[in-house]
Computed example of a mutant assay.
Amino acid sequence: MKVTISTFQKLKGNGKITSITAYDALFARIFDGEVDMILVGDSLSMSFGGNKDTIPLSLDSMIYHTQAVSKVVKKSLLIADMPFGSYNTNKSALKNATKLYKEGGADAIKIEVNENKIDMVKMLSDNGIATMPHIGLMPQFYRFEGGYKIKGKSKEEKDSMLELALKLQDAGAFSLLIEGTKSDIARDITQNLKIPTIGIGSGNHTDGQILVWSDMFGFFDEFKPKFVRQYLNGKELLKKSIKQYADDVKNLRFPNDDESY
């Protein structure tokens, strides 16, 4: 059965929620139904687009990739990231989120938020756009903060994050993504919220986990975050197969008679 917003929320407290990213129909079809949630993440700017961070990604590019994924996802809940610069104000957020929601075909959108974006979450929710706020380490702030900074190291920061999470829940968020955060505050947030939390680099006390597919399957090796576990040495397996293919062609082993008309 298709995971919907309501059934997704019921997963809280009923086992861990599984999530993964996807950027195209080929991989989305493979992942669909194997995980509870698929995210068309702005991480595609790096692993797919070759950029050093997520900031260059455009709204049109996000719509394009979300459309490709939504065509084949029939079971998992589908979320799409709002790219950098597409939700600077409530007016632009509503306009661009509506466009992504309508044209992309996702079940919900995700936005990176701080205290200044609480009203935005309420505004989007009030307009029928299911919204997952993203707190903690926010990749779209990579240049502003001068790198990827782990959050929740001080008591003040922990208290602020918990307060923010509660306000976002009250604003209508259906779920919350917590990235790059000390595990104890991610645990406290999870325990104090009625909505599900999804963690990435935030320990194992959140309601679920998400990883970027190219990280976990060993295709992206520009750098490897501490929290990533590789489940496949994909790059090396693929390179080995390509070399075998090239060798077979050069030595007239491919195509053989059975592969010819």
Rank of each mutant, 00 (worst) to 15 (best):
Y87W: 12
G152F: 07
E163F: 01
E157L: 10
K153M: 01
L211S: 10
Q244D: 14
E157K: 12
F31M: 15
L44P: 05
D247P: 01
S43M: 06
I109M: 08
I198Q: 02
M62I: 09
F219I: 04
E179C: 07
F31Q: 10
Y64Q: 14
K99D: 06
Y23A: 05
L211V: 06
R187N: 13
S154R: 04
I185H: 03
V121E: 11
I55M: 09
N116F: 12
K74I: 00
S58M: 11
Q67E: 15
L39Y: 06
N256I: 11
K75A: 13
Q191Y: 12
Q230P: 00
V35N: 09
H134W: 03
K239R: 08
K110Y: 10
Y101P: 02
I63T: 05
I198K: 01
D170H: 11
M161W: 00
A186C: 05
L137G: 03
G15R: 03
L39H: 09
F223P: 00
F31I: 15
D184E: 15
L77M: 14
M62Y: 08
L177A: 01
S202G: 07
N192F: 05
G15M: 09
L252C: 10
M82N: 09
G15H: 10
M138V: 09
E222Y: 12
G180L: 03
A28E: 09
H205M: 12
N116P: 00
G104C: 08
P83K: 02
G105N: 08
E157R: 14
I111H: 02
G128F: 08
I55L: 14
A173E: 04
A108W: 06
I200Y: 08
G201K: 07
K12T: 04
G199P: 03
K151V: 06
P56H: 05
L162H: 00
I38A: 07
S6K: 06
I210F: 01
V113G: 12
K99C: 06
D81N: 13
M123H: 13
T89N: 08
S160K: 15
I150P: 00
D107S: 10
A246I: 14
S76Y: 11
E179L: 05
V40K: 03
A28N: 03
F254H: 14
S125K: 10
M62N: 12
M123C: 06
I38M: 12
D258G: 00
A28L: 03
A186R: 02
F219L: 14
D247E: 14
Y23V: 04
K243Y: 04
D53V: 01
N114V: 02
T21Y: 09
K74H: 06
K250R: 15
T54W: 04
I17E: 02
A25T: 01
G128H: 13
N88K: 15
T4K: 05
A25S: 15
T131F: 09
T206G: 00
S160V: 00
I135M: 03
R29D: 15
D60F: 01
D42M: 12
K239L: 14
Q169N: 02
H134Q: 02
R187C: 02
A97H: 01
Y142R: 11
L211E: 02
F223M: 10
I5Q: 07
L59Q: 10
K52N: 15
S61K: 14
